[in-house]
Amino acid sequence: MSNAVTAVSASPAANDGKSVPARLGEAFVGRLVIIIPYLWLLFFFLVPFIIVFKISLSQTAIAMPPYTPVLDFRDGISGFFAGFGELNFDNYAWLTQDALYVNAYVSSVIIAAISTLLTLLVGYPIAYGMARAPAAIRPTLLMLVILPFWTSFLIRVYAWIGILKPEGLLNQLLLSTGIISQPLIILNTYTAIFIGIVYSYLPFMVLPLYSALEKMDHSLIEAAKDLGCPPTSAFWKITFPLSLPGVIAGCLLVFIPAVGEFVIPDLLGGSQTLMIGKTLWNEFFANRDWPVSSAVAVILLLLLIVPIMLFQRAQARAQEQDR
């Protein structure tokens, strides 16, 4: 039996001319490439989520940290299992009873959805123009899109305060040209929030769209024109459907961080802006209610993760049906 195994392992047809250690090494490297991302998600996503979820099930206390620890291993395994009876779900019930949190979630989703739509309307023509530009200047155009990332995000948001305030650059320009007779009130409004989000997250929309549009076969458009298809119809029947993967990817990359955005609503929207990011900040730092703020964070995460998982499953089923 051992001679047969040795003969098979030594056969070039069985191992493609590679030794057993080489094949084992390649298999180990292949598995390592898969394991590393999962370990990254485990330590930097799942473990912090479990910690936050555990805090959300505790009670507020005047101590440091300001909550009563639950499911703690300091009392041993028996104490850990006994802690299940001390879990408190009142924080989640409180979120449903207080209209502040419900309105904050709804407002955040609406603002993020409108901002994502505006970013798509602005980013699609930019990406389309980049994809149709000569190949020699495409790297330069890509660099111009990525260039804002070289400056601090906070500094870029502060710059918009100088542009949008009543005595800012925008009002000075409009007043000097005679377009308006009195300064516009843009700062500390939802309009300023939309401007800040669109500006800040525009590259996240342009880059996936450009990647999808660049790979498109432009001969399809030429064939449609030869068959008498108007340019507008050719765009909606050919270009836009082929760019849908980029549209979906860009919308997700903009919508997800926009829902939990804190800096832009706080600096450009003012104190009256109601978004879940500001509510979470106030609960955590101002009220020092860590259990409630942790419950807010858990609900926010589930609000974003569940639709993404459902979308991925629907996309996987569609791909299986196409096959």
Rank of each mutant, 00 (worst) to 15 (best):
T96R: 08
A159N: 08
S107K: 10
D98F: 12
L252F: 13
G17W: 07
G250K: 04
T191A: 13
N282P: 02
F262E: 06
S56G: 06
A316Y: 03
P166Y: 08
I62P: 00
Y92G: 01
P65E: 00
I110A: 13
S211K: 05
K165E: 14
C251T: 04
N88Y: 03
S271T: 15
A27V: 06
F235N: 00
T151C: 04
K225E: 11
P241Q: 02
E214T: 10
I264V: 12
I34E: 05
V29D: 02
S152Q: 11
P245M: 07
S9C: 06
I155H: 11
A131G: 06
I163C: 03
V198A: 03
L310P: 06
W236A: 01
I111Q: 09
P241N: 02
D98V: 13
T189G: 09
K54D: 00
A112P: 04
L175E: 09
L144V: 11
P265V: 11
L42M: 15
V259Q: 03
V47Y: 15
N88R: 02
N3T: 13
S108C: 11
A297W: 01
L121S: 07
F44L: 14
R23S: 04
P245K: 06
P69I: 00
E167C: 03
R313A: 12
T177I: 14
I36F: 07
G246T: 11
V306I: 15
V47R: 11
P291V: 04
R313T: 13
R23T: 08
E222D: 07
Y201G: 02
W160P: 01
F194A: 04
F153D: 10
W236I: 07
P134Y: 07
K215S: 10
V145I: 07
H218F: 00
I34M: 13
V29Q: 07
A258T: 13
L244T: 12
L41E: 12
V109C: 10
M275S: 08
P134C: 06
I195D: 01
S181I: 13
K54M: 00
S211I: 10
R31D: 03
F262Q: 05
Y105A: 05
V198S: 02
I36V: 15
